[in-house]
């Protein structure tokens, strides 16, 4: 049996999770649900980026006894997407906390989080 490599699997998984998160964002009516869908979408983007940086039969980008210093370029996976995802995760938690704060303020103001019940912006 010929199985696909794990980079293809995780790439496909990332795309399906991306679509699931997008569907949740545009379909759900509760603001907390929208934020949960956003965090699913966030995770999926990280998964896609990391799996694009993966290369087969190579190891983590750390020079130690397994990776020689001179020949690192042919032994390690791409360090650049990992560095970008590292910052993206930390920004993600900040953005999620900010959105939750706005949702809490909105709830204190209006008493509900169902977006169908907000009438003030409708004409």
């Amino acid at each position: 049996m010929n199985l696909p490599g794990i980079e293809y699997l995780s790439l496909g998984l990332g795309i399906v999770l991306f679509l699931a998160g997008l569907w949740g964002i545009i379909h759900q009516k509760n603001i907390i649900k929208i934020i949960i869908s956003f965090s699913v979408l966030d995770t999926s983007i990280h998964l896609i980026l990391v799996s694009i940086g993966y290369m087969r039969n190579r190891t983590a980008p750390i020079i130690d006894s397994a990776v020689s210093k001179t020949d690192a370029a042919s032994q390690v996976v791409d360090p650049l997407p990992q560095a970008l995802v590292l910052t993206a995760i930390v920004i993600g938690v900040g953005i999620t906390a900010l959105m939750l704060t706005y949702a809490l303020k909105l709830f204190n103001e209006k008493g509900t989080l169902e977006i169908d019940k907000f009438k003030s912006l409708k004409w």
Binding site: P61, I62, I63, D64, A72, V76, P79, L80, Q82, A83, L84, L86, T87
Partner: peptide
């Protein structure tokens, strides 16, 4: 030794 650290702290 950690290339990700090298990228995060200096190059980027």
């Amino acid at each position: 030794a950690n290339l990700v650290t090298a990228v995060v702290v200096t190059y980027r």
